[in-house]
Design a protein around this nucleic acid. Structure first.
Lengths: 339, 339
DNA sequence: ATAATGAATGCAACCGGTACCAGTATTGTT
DNA sequence: AACAATACTGGTACCGGTTGCATTCATTAT
């Protein structure tokens, strides 16, 4: 079965292709009568405008691209990405565009995929995870004045368009939640604070201590790796202290599992002896024993807002750089339920 | 900066656009001398052929589509999908096409997204997860003789093109691994066996018993829900038996956590008293306590093969329906280390 | 009655490639 | 030397839309 073209529709309706085109594009110059007639024919012929012809004529591809990072295949075992993608996808299709997925590691005929996408006019805008907001990529995008938005705060000097969850706020909320539950000696365990999100969570932790009149203690702020073993080691060290903490904020769900193990090994109990708040409300947070209180981030919303920002850039390329922070919320579970 | 077109290249090189086009398409009719000259100009002008024009002229979109399921946003908290996508993406870009992501729940101007994509000539082929291989979708795809492939064995009567991991083989391997480790009274715990993958894993379990001369015992095959609580309940019931199993095969990582809990609660130990093999080698399998032996499925490879099958269908639309099963492998960890 | 105004529609060029057909130059054959 | 075959390249119509300008026709102003 051959698909109908605008010409077929025009002939069947006894009008010119211009008229059909105007109806497709909702041009008000067309009389209601003609419009109805043509719309009926379009329905009958199952007509959908040829997107490639439209794109060529309009000089825009009707697509935006979500960049992915090959390195993340394993690390993105985290559910994060899928939900962001879903939020993005939602907004993109509302605008009648397609969403393209592109791995930035890819080379096509020796071109970087960025060049291939941009110069080949395959796409109108790009969304990057912060891990891909590298100097090289940014330079290339700026060279073409190409609209792009980053999700996750990028760790780079240039002011970019980005959307992130408010990690700093989250850190503060974690402290406040623990204080409300009666904990006072609150430790902070994270991976490297050179990672911006850890740094921000740490800042929030400091904010929280200060706002609650709790003294900051250097030795309560542990910094290390990201594995369960790291969590176990760091927490064991903290628990070995005479004046051990009675609560801990942890930036990572996996680390938290190590922390739980350490507490259990030390013969202490959660939440009675030690409270835990983790970040990132992954499924394992709820499956842990006991279920973990977390700083919940609305990742779907992150995707939605990122896409919306991109469309702003596309529609108004001269608008200023902007940044958006999405509020976090405490998801209280057993691990801080001191009664 | 305005991007160069084929015309610009032709003028700069002092040849016709036909010649440039032939070079783009690696037509051998062009002399080496001319080719070099033109390629040099192309490089200088940073020329990449306009994909929309090419697509229009070639009558193909140079894209394939991966369908996603909105319902899975939460359930696909499982890392599965991301890796499949990555495998697909790899193959697609090797062929110089783009990968489009489309949520099948979407409607565009009251059209199903399938109609929109196909009739709008946005894409050349579609990959569906088995959950989206519904009668309605299949009918629509077949109506247009549109190339598509399913990943995950679809539970439907029509013979379709699909790729899946060999769940049945995996079930058998699980039994054999347990037998090798000295376990003999092997139970099987799963979600509903109406789900095809559970059914296949169950069949493999039966195969394994038979091949190892172990009697099948109805009461050792528990079937229920998919939550941690379900796992706990089913396993507790099994452990309460006089002749309790000394090992269990479980079709799901989450269920397994409940099973671990049940064993722990019963005062028994893994792997000494009870061995566990789970399916799906998710990160939590390794993080569990003790780490879980799993039937590992190569999900990336699933993506790769699915995409390859799709390209076969695109290149040769008349080829027969085909199915591919990808071998599974035991990933041995603590939970079956009886030594 | 005639010119001016405006609403509705058609004509044709164009977007940037592709590909068939034709034309020229070169080499080989007899 | 005449002709055929081959290698290479150019001209041009076409893919299916969009859009500025022209045209038609009805309506209103003079």
């Amino acid at each position: 079965m051959v698909l109908a073209s605008i010409k077929d529709v025009a002939i069947a309706a006894g009008v010119s292709t211009s008229t059909v085109s105007r109806i497709i594009n909702e041009n008000p110059a067309i009389s209601a009568e003609t419009r109805e007639k043509v719309l009926k024919i379009m329905k009958e012929l199952d007509y959908v405008p040829n997107s490639m012809a439209r794109a060529l004529s309009n000089q825009r591809a009707f697509t935006v691209t979500l960049a992915i990072n090959a390195d993340d295949v394993k690390s993105f075992n985290n559910p994060f990405f899928y939900e962001v993608m879903h939020g993005i996808e939602k907004v993109v299709y509302q605008k009648d565009l397609c969403l393209i997925i592109a791995n930035m590691q890819t080379f096509i005929k020796k071109e970087s995929i960025l060049t291939w996408l941009i110069n080949g006019k395959r796409t109108q805008g790009i969304i990057l995870p912060s891990s891909l907001a590298t100097e090289k990529n940014i330079k290339e995008l700026n060279k073409h004045h190409f609209p792009f938005v980053v999700f996750g705060e990028p760790d780079c000097p240039d002011p970019l368009n980005w959307v992130d969850v408010n990690n700093r706020q989250g850190g503060q909320q974690a402290v406040e939640h623990l204080v409300r539950q009666g904990y006072r000696k609150i430790a902070f365990i994270s991976g490297s604070r050179k990672e911006l999100f850890n740094k921000n969570r740490y800042r929030g932790y400091l904010d929280g201590l200060e706002r609650n009149g709790l003294a900051f203690r250097e030795e309560f702020a542990a910094e290390g790796g990201n594995t369960k073993a790291d969590g176990l080691a760091m927490m064991s060290r903290l628990l070995a202290r005479e004046d051990r903490p009675d609560a801990v904020i942890c930036t990572d769900n996996i680390l938290s599992l190590g922390i739980l193990k350490a507490i259990q090994t030390a013969g202490l109990s959660v939440p009675k002896d030690v409270g835990i708040v983790s970040f990132d409300n992954f499924p394992i947070a709820d499956l842990a024993d006991p279920p973990l209180t977390t700083v919940d981030v609305d990742v779907y919303e992150l995707g939605v807002q990122t896409a919306q920002m991109l469309f702003k850039m596309i529609e108004n390329p001269l608008s200023r750089q902007q940044q958006t922070l999405i509020a976090t919320e405490i998801q209280a579970r057993e691990s801080t339920k001191r009664v």
